[in-house]
Design a protein around this nucleic acid. Structure first.
Length: 452
RNA sequence: GGGCCCUUCGUCUAUCGGUUAGGACACCAGAUUUUCAAUCUGGGAAGAGGGGUUCGACUCCCCUAGGGCCUACCA
């Protein structure tokens, strides 16, 4: 799954790279062989592709570079910036408990012993963090953040089996890949101080860092499943458009004056990492809906038809043979009421109902003798309509009401029940236009035959 | 426990020492009306608390409170 916070971090990286005329690179940090399954990796690629954030170069897989990471650790060992720690798992657990009780980072007793002590036992390679002074992260988002070195622990670089850990791998890869800007979630801010120590120990130049605040759920708590969605895939399934999510995400934690709706080009032009808000933001569904509504209005109708078709298929809705034509006629007339593609699918249902349509008890109740007669006369009037389009149809309905000497309330509800066929329908003129002359008159016929 | 980050309307944000603290979403009211939306008009709504610095603080500093992150041989 690609978390929405990850998606926003990717978006900001993408925007910044474009803004600066640089490159947007993707690296899959798959050093945890248990968690990094092919499916998980594929989900990342899919999420990025759907969001429209494809990297400028082939993705790099961290695990494949393990030898290089190991070499970096050995180099650091040689330079004295790291040491072999022979603590057993049990000893470590004990030390961890003690350290926590004393409110200090873990200190390995092997830190200051000779390099070959215990040479025949398994060992990990630990960073030798300095005990004095401080390490400063000049963060593009948070500003200057200082850590006392004595608060930084000797993190493990190489596990007992010789495999590199994340913190080592990230530094080595960022260096090798020529990464100039590391823009990531602020859950890494603490790691960064320790990573800087690795850069320094190896004599490598530091990239610029920018730590983005996390995205929380509407209640302020960490975003989780109970908030509705946390992965980009889920947003897609909920009927959000990628361009809408890009706009919303860009705006969540960053702003450019009063601009709310903007194009990718504008975002690229305006975006600067130093303008990113340093506080965490809450996901707000109503606002996302609003932005999505906007982009649905802008979207090409054929594309909307395709997306709507996917939703209808996933719902196993039985579709008439001419569904494509029906969707094509209906979508432009109802999309102004849709905040998501899921809603669009709901709004389009009335036009897909097969004939003969069936009136339920409530609908039948609308048909008094008077209304029956009036609907009959309406069918005649409609049959004579010259142009079957929303505006003239609306005019025709009004003229009919005048001719009858009544308000539209005297036949509107009944006509609505007929055209909607048990689903939700738009305004009557649009509903008639979407259904077409033949279908509309046919449904009226179906209805009248049921209430005789 | 320790380290670090954060704190302007309900939410996202603007402000970068001097504003009637602006906008958007949401909300409320009205208009429209054949349902529900959409749309249009109007309205209410904010600087966590306490100290400083300053002629003047939302803005700078300190403390408190409240959130969050890290504290793995996870990433």
């Amino acid at each position: 799954m690609m978390h929405i916070g990850t998606a926003r971090a990717a978006l900001y990286n993408w925007l910044y790279a474009r803004h600066m005329g640089g490159k947007f690179l993707l690296r899959v940090e798959d050093t945890d062989r248990e968690r990094s399954t092919p499916e998980a990796v594929e989900a990342i690629f899919e999420g990025m592709k759907w969001l429209g954030l494809e990297p400028d170069e082939e993705p790099v897989f961290q695990f494949q570079r393990a030898d290089l990471h190991r070499a970096a650790a050995l180099e650091l060992l040689e330079r004295g910036g790291a040491y072999k720690c022979f603590m057993t798992i049990e000893e470590l657990a004990e030390e961890r408990e003690k350290a926590r009780a004393e409110g200090r980072p873990i200190r390995s007793p092997w830190r200051d012993r000779g390099p070959d002590v215990g040479a025949n036992q398994p060992f990990v390679v630990r960073l030798r963090a300095p005990l004095e002074g401080e390490t400063v992260v000049d963060d593009l988002v948070k500003g200057r953040v200082a850590f006392k070195n004595r608060e930084l622990d000797d993190l493990i670089l190489l596990r007992a089996d010789g495999s590199p850990t994340y913190n080592l791998a990230v530094v080595a890869d960022d260096h090798d890949m020529g990464i100039t800007h590391v823009i990531r979630g602020d859950d890494h801010l603490n790691n960064t101080a320790r990573q800087i120590l690795i850069y320094q120990g190896l004599g490598w130049p530091l990239p610029a860092f920018g730590h983005l605040p996390l995205i929380h759920g509407p209640d302020g708590a960490k975003l989780s499943k109970r908030h509705g969605a946390q992965g980009v895939r889920e947003f897609a399934d909920m009927g959000y458009l990628p361009e809408a999510l890009r706009n919303y995400l860009a705006r969540l934690g960053w702003g450019h004056g009063d601009d709310e709706i903007f194009s990718d080009a504008q975002a690229v032009e305006w975006f600067d990492i130093v303008d990113v808000v340093s506080a965490s933001a809450r996901l707000d569904w109503p606002k996302l809906n609003h932005v999505n509504h906007h982009y649905i209005q802008l979207a090409n109708d054929e594309r909307l038809a395709g997306l709507t078709f996917e939703v209808l298929s996933s719902r196993s809705v039985h579709l008439p043979a001419d569904f494509a034509a029906r969707l094509g006629r209906t979508i432009p007339l109802v999309k102004d009421g849709a905040k998501t593609i899921l809603e669009l699918a709901d709004l389009v249902m009335f036009a897909l109902k097969p004939r003969p349509i069936e009136l339920d008890a409530k609908a039948r109740g609308l048909f008094t003798d008077e209304v029956k007669a009036r609907i009959g006369r309406l069918a005649e009037a409609l049959g004579a309509a010259e142009v079957w389009k929303p505006e003239p149809l609306l005019a025709g309905l009004k003229t009919f009401a005048e001719t009858e000497g009544v308000g539209m309330g005297k036949f509107g509800p009944a006509l609505r029940a007929i055209l909607a066929a048990g689903a939700v329908a738009p305004d009557l003129a649009s509903a008639l236009a979407a259904l077409g002359r033949e279908e509309s008159l046919g449904r009226i016929e179906d209805a009248l035959s049921q209430v005789q």
